[in-house]
């Protein structure tokens, strides 16, 4: 048993720096994917609420399609398929694109839930006070929606973080690929993969916890608010 942990002592100096570097790539990769997902998600929500029926249907179809396809299939299709159309992107950017597209469908749901959670009377009171629809959205609806949306958005980021591991399969130098390489280099797959698991855990767990705590705190606050009129 002790022998198991002794191995980490021997190799830590070589493994840790490599993994830390790779972790940075993972973090930025998922962050960029998340930003793309936020932007696309907001566009989707806008499209879902528009008066133009064609746009609404397009948005709904997009969401349906994206939710029916595995991320890996999307990544492989983009990575190997796009060159046939003249567009050769490195794995990193295919990853950002794929994560962004898949993330957008989920983010759109979260944004919609947040906006719907704000009682329509809030907006009415704002319009009645003479605020334009835009001002009403900016100063009254959005701030309240943010509270509802924050925990699930944090969860979405954690999801993206985990999904970024699939980019290893399209030759992106992130945590999982580095781990795979190291595992074969040193013939110590068990130790390496447990270690890399810990790396992911160290990044994801605090965020998951934050999200849960936020949800509990905001949930409590909202119950009080609810009894005093929304």
């Amino acid at each position: 048993m002790i022998a198991f942990f002794a191995i980490y002592g021997d190799y830590a100096a070589e493994w840790l720096p490599r993994l830390v570097l790779a972790a940075r790539v993972t973090a930025t990769l998922s962050l960029l994917g998340f930003v793309l997902a936020l932007v696309l998600g907001a566009v989707l929500v806008a499209a879902q609420r528009t008066h133009v029926a064609a746009l609404r249907r397009a948005a709904a179809a997009f969401v349906q399609f994206v939710r029916a396809v595995p991320l890996l299939a999307l990544l492989l299709a983009l990575y190997f398929g796009l060159p046939s159309f003249g567009l050769t992107l490195p794995g990193y950017w295919v990853g950002v694109l794929g994560l962004g597209i898949q993330g957008a469908a989920y983010v759109a749901e979260v944004l919609r839930g947040g906006l719907d959670a704000v009682h329509r009377g809030q907006r009415e009171a704002a319009l009645a006070a003479g605020l334009t629809p835009l001002a009403a959205f900016r100063f009254v609806v959005l701030p309240q929606a943010m509270r509802v949306m924050l925990p699930p958005l944090l969860n979405a980021y954690v999801s993206l973080l985990k999904d970024s591991s699939l980019c290893a399969l399209i030759a992106t130098d992130e945590l999982m690929l580095t781990a795979r390489a190291m595992a074969s280099e040193y013939f110590l797959p068990l130790h390496v993969f447990v270690l890399v698991g810990l790396f992911y855990f160290a990044i994801a767990f605090p965020l998951s916890m934050c999200s849960r705590l936020l949800a509990r705190r905001l949930g409590r606050g909202r119950r009080t608010l609810g009894t005093n009129q929304g």
């Binding site: 699939l166 110590l188 797959p189 993969f193």
Partner: peptide, 19 residues
């Protein structure tokens, strides 16, 4: 839930094989 599924699969397939 905080570690990617891929890592779990690698652990089970490659990791266990090594022992």
């Amino acid at each position: 839930r905080n570690v990617p599924a891929l890592a779990h699969l690698f652990l089970l397939y490659f990791g266990l094989a090594s022992v």
